[in-house]
Every structure is written in C-alpha cells, then in structure tokens.
Design a protein around this nucleic acid. Structure first.
Length: 447
RNA sequence: UCCUCGAUAGCUCAAUUGGCAGAGCAUGCGGCUGUUAACCGCAGGGUUCUUGGUUCGAGUCCAAGUCGAGGAGCCA
C-alpha cells in the first residue's frame, strides 16, 4: 500500500508511489489521456491518467468523475514544470484510482459568478481556490498573533460573551433575554481585560464580537473576531510599539508561510514586505490639517471620484478622510490623540490638554481602513467616575470597573484588532465577507 | 435611515426606437496522448423577480412592492 500524503508535501516524495485523497476540482479529458485536478485541502495537484497505465475499469471510472467527486488516486510523484497546482510543478503519474462518490452536478463553475449566487452557496464556495487561500491566511494570522503574544509574556484570558451592559454605550448591541433580564452580546472584552491585567500583567482575549449596526458596506460585519491585548504599566507610546512589532511579525509570517496562498490571490507582496516597524505616527491635529489642505486643493479621495471633504477640528474622520490619510503612507499609519469628546469615556485625557485623549487608531494602507483602535485607559478613580457621569452612563454596572482603580491603580493601555480587516488587507480582497468562513451581515446569515 | 445601481436558461450576460427569446459556460452524447477556465461536432434547457397600468403589441415604457449590490453615517 502506498502511503497517503498531503499535496503540500509532494516535493518530499518525488519518485515515490503515493496515494492522494481528495476531491476533483476540474478535469480535462483528452481521449486516452485525462488530467484530474485533485484538491485535498492542503493544496491542488494534477493527477495524470494515461489509458495504458491504469486498468480498463479505473480509466472508465475516471471518465465518470464529475466536479467535486471524492476519490483516492495512487501513482508516482513526478516533477514537471508544466504541471499546474498549489504548489505547482509536481504531478501524479496515476496507476490506480478509487472513486468514493460521484458528485451531483456542482453549481459553482471555475468561472465568474455573481456575489449573491456565491454567498447563497458559501458552504461550497469555501472550496474554491481563492476562498481557500484567504481562509488559510486567516488561520496563519491568528496563529501568528497568538505566537507573538504568547512569546512576549501575554496570557490568554477569555472574556464573557454575555454581558449585562454596553461597554462603550454608543454602538448598537444585540439584546438577548437572560432569564428575564436583558443582556447583550459582547462588543468587546476590554473592561474584563482591565481586571485581568491586575492579576496577570499582560493579557489578551480573542473571540467573536457582535455589532448590530445598520452598516452595509465592505468594511462591516455583524459578527467579527477581535483580538484585544491589554497591558499594565504601559502608556500610549509603548502601546504603539507593541502594535507595530506584533503586526510586522504577523505580516512576515504570512509572507513566508502563505507564499502559495498569496500567489493564488495574486497579491502584490512588495507592499506587504514594507510593513516593518516602526510605523509613521501622526497627531490628530496634523491629520485634520492634511485633510483640509487636500480639500482646499481639490484633491480626490484615492480610488473614488469624490473630492476630499473638508472637516472641522473636533469631529471624527469619515470614511473618505481615513482613506485619504492612509493613502499618504506606504505603511500602516498611527493617528493618535483624537478629541476626547468623540471617544469612549475610559480614555485618558492628555495632561495639560484635556480636549484630546491618549488614543490611537492604526490605519492600514491601500484603503483597508482602521485595523486597530486603542488607548491609554483612565487610571484615576475620581476622574473615571466623573467621566461616567459626564457620558450619562449608569453608575451601578461600572462599580467593579471603578474598583480596579482603587487597589493598586497603574497606567495601562490596550487595543483591539479586527481579524477580518487584517486578513482582507493582507489578502488584498475587496470585502470582509470573504475573510471569514460564514459571514454574518445585515440581512444575511445563511448559510 | 439615506443616496445610486441592478434582477432575462443551472451560471455569466446580450437582445437597436416598444415588433419572432439569444450566446458562452455548465449538463448529456460522440471525438481527441500534454490539458491549464482546453478544443471540435450534435442535443436538451425560458412563468424575462412580483403585482398592476399604458399599448394593436412590453424583456424594453410607467407605478408600487420584493430581493440583491455599491456607497454614506457608525465602527474594528
């Protein structure tokens, strides 16, 4: 019996007889010669079936195979420059074939399809090579993030998904019935992580978060995965260093571990190779000045036909503003010190200039938008209570949160990183829905 | 919530001013020893999103609705 191997390891078996097990991705029938494109989850390999090299029955069986039929195919691994595949350059010179199931007529063809059709068939679409590549990059991103954090003294702490109150008060939440009491699906684990750091120093949580926003754009999902590190004895400047080191590491890991996937996606890797710390940093004041200078000069938003709109100091950036700012740099750019009034209550105001706070967003290049948002947290209990009251939030749900500042309060900071946005950026794809296997979007949660 | 666009064969699309419903791919049958979304021949495949209206005549024009896409706001 030939050993069963994964297509990814073909190169290590040149000249050997092996068995591949997988599904038929595509087939070309040339009469006495058939080319079977077999995918097994790890890659894609062409199995060549010559009539004279296999039994009558096996040759006939190969002829009956439809797209996505499951099979096992045995043969000799041959290096051949002409062979397509992931990775390319190897093929299987088949000697025998076992059909597991002949698939029904498969709806997705190797050609252009519309979004609606593909989303309706998402359970099948994930088998297609582009989707397969994106989701493998996603796995690498998550693995690399965890590796970096785990090896830099962070402890993984899981935070609750069922929560009694809004963490930030502003965003729309999914309300559920917690045995007669209203509860909400978490939109962040941050407040709990702030408790965790006083026990463990440096922590991160990673899990799904939920936003019931009426957003219907390529940059929004109703359910997305967020990584949230939180660090004790860490100020805003130190936070930015952590972010840029971690993200540079993740990009470089993807470049080495997912070279084949990025090739499938036809991603321009030169722009990713530039993503090395340090990243440029600009103050909110500076960003507003850049935007208004561009607006005055009549510059267009990169990628759009609309001019950059002017904005008054004190407002949050609109989507066109973010796109314009990010396009001025060839690396991700930090924008820090946003106006206090547009940010969450727990952010530390800048000493001596309380109208701005010690917050920072990281904007990805190429129009991929905000991929992290973070800040130095308020560490004085009296100021925190005042902030909660100023935002008209109820005191009771935050009592434990204020408590943290009474027993050994320290300067601390943290941020959240959106996984789907990061994956979309790395893969160069146009919509977040492709960066998660089964996206939840406004008016769409099937399959 | 607002703005813009769209819906025709299983899929992707075409159909001139309102005048016979079309093609490619997929499917079935046949052919082919190097295909890369192969190619060649033959065949089958339609409630033109729904409802109403205008007209001798509507895929095409009008109205309402449904569904989808892109964008704004908000955000990661």
């Amino acid at each position: 019996m030939a050993p069963i191997i994964q297509i990814r390891e073909m190169a290590e078996h040149i000249g050997a007889e092996v068995t591949l097990q997988g599904w038929l991705y595509a087939k070309t029938n040339k009469g006495r010669l058939q080319f079977l494109q077999v995918r097994d989850g790890s890659g894609l390999c062409q199995a060549v079936v010559f009539k004279k090299n296999v039994s009558e029955e096996d040759f006939a069986a190969a002829k009956e195979l439809t797209q996505e039929s499951s099979l096992r195919v045995t043969g000799k691994v041959v290096a051949n420059e002409r062979s397509p595949g992931i990775p390319g350059g190897y093929e299987l010179d088949s000697t025998s074939l076992e059909v597991v199931q002949v698939a029904d007529e498969y709806p997705i063809q190797p050609k252009e399809h519309g979004v609606e059709f593909l989303m309706k068939n998402r359970h099948l679409w994930i088998r297609s090579s582009r989707q397969w590549a994106v989701l493998r990059v996603r796995a690498t991103v998550i693995r690399a993030l965890r590796d970096w954090l785990d090896s830099h003294g962070f402890l993984n702490m899981d935070t609750p998904i069922l929560t009694p109150a809004a963490a930030e008060g502003t965003t729309t939440l999914f309300e559920i019935d917690f045995h007669g009491e209203p509860a909400y699906l978490a939109q962040t684990g941050q407040l709990y992580n702030e408790a965790n750091i006083f026990a463990f120093g440096k922590v991160y949580c990673f899990g799904p978060t939920f936003r019931a926003e009426k957003s219907k754009t390529r940059r929004h999902l109703q359910e997305f995965w967020m990584l949230e590190p939180e660090i004790a004895f860490c100020n805003l400047e130190q936070l930015m260093e952590i972010e840029e080191e971690m993200i540079s590491y993740v990009i470089q890991r993807c470049l080495t571990e997912n070279a084949e996937e990025l090739k499938v996606l036809e991603r321009d890797t030169a722009s990713l190779q530039r993503v090395m710390a340090p990243f440029p940093r600009i103050h909110y004041d500076e960003a507003v000045a850049m935007i208004n200078a561009a607006a005055e000069a009549g510059e267009l938003v990169p990628g759009y036909d609309d001019p950059v709109p002017a904005m008054p100091w004190g407002e949050d950036f609109g989507s066109p503003h973010e796109t314009y700012i990010a396009a001025q740099f060839d690396k991700p750019v930090f924008v820090h010190h946003y106006p206090t009034q547009i940010k969450a209550f727990y952010m530390e105001p800048e000493p001596g200039r309380a109208e701005v706070c010690r917050s920072v967003d990281l904007l990805a290049p190429e129009g991929y938008g905000e991929i992290t948002g973070g800040s130095e947290r308020m560490s004085d209990p009296e100021k925190l209570i005042a902030a909660i009251q100023a935002h008209n939030l109820p005191m009771e749900p935050y009592e434990w949160y204020v408590d943290l500042r009474k027993y050994g309060s320290v300067v601390h900071s943290g941020f959240g990183l959106g996984i789907e946005r990061t994956v979309s950026w790395i893969c160069g794809i146009g919509h977040l829905r492709e960066a998660i296997a089964f996206p939840r979007m406004l008016q769409s949660m099937r399959p």
